[in-house]
Amino acid sequence: MTPLELFAQQLANGLTLGAIYALIALGYTMVYGVVQLINFAHGEVFMAGAYAAVFAVLFVGVSGAPWGVALGVAVGAAVILCAALGWAIERLAYRPIRQASRLNAFITAIGMSLFLQNALMLIGGATDRQFPAIVPALRWEVAGVTVTLIQLLVWGSAAAMMAALQWLVMATRLGKAMRATAQDLTACLLLGIPVDRIIAVTFMAGSSLAAVGGVLFGLQYGTINFHDGYLIGMKAFTAAVLGGIGNIPGAMAGGLLLGLIESLAAGYLSAQWKSVFAFGVLVIVLLWRPTGLFGERVADRA
């Protein structure tokens, strides 16, 4: 492998990881945009999506079906479960304390994260779980770089989901209401925008993206564990902040950038220190642009 091919391979791996980070980061950023809450339980929602896919594939028994159907079952189950979970989390935990201080909401989010993480452990088991290989292990050599079908799926579906989200937020009435809620919740109430419903939909949309991210993560890495959600969730949150939290294109760019940094740092510098590089870049970027790469609004509105 020539140095250039090696570099291209690292880029491909980084883009795959980055696309998954970006899908999860979108959930953090959307929720932050409308209610200024760091939804700590989002990483667990992502993991719940992966587990839902595993169980759905096991129960439905898709062994004979074409792989597209199996994938559809997995993604469908993950999205439905996570959307319901996102709705329930918002309705039961966050809505009652929306008027309280933001630190309280943060602690509630941590409690929710612990609760979900342990619920996942009780339901899915404490050990690593094999993710069913529903997508055939096809691979192609393109100019010396190995690209798998799974990687193509990750890139394609991440791009499609982001485009759909961009359309939803920028071109529909619902998206307009979301943006209005993010700008001024009280004014929206006065104008008769159903703020509670908009917030619930935002949670459901973010959770659905995390669900897709969970399935893609399982496909790409082969095994899942109940505490993966915590680390991946934290990285995705970092990505959201890197891009400027509350900003949707920022979350996408931040996710891709973080994935690339980790992959290149692991390939060229040291795999053990890759997270240090990721966080180091975050700190440097924030020192240079204190509200992230794309952030304009200052988070502190007190």
Binding site: I38, F279, L286, P290, A299
Partner: peptide, 23 residues
């Protein structure tokens, strides 16, 4: 970093610092 970074951004800088130290 608090010289420039504020609010939730400062929170994540401290989070990153904590992870860097542990790693």
């Amino acid at each position: 970093p608090a010289l420039r970074v504020r609010g939730d951004y400062l929170a994540i800088v401290t989070l990153g610092f904590g992870e860097i130290v542990r790693i």
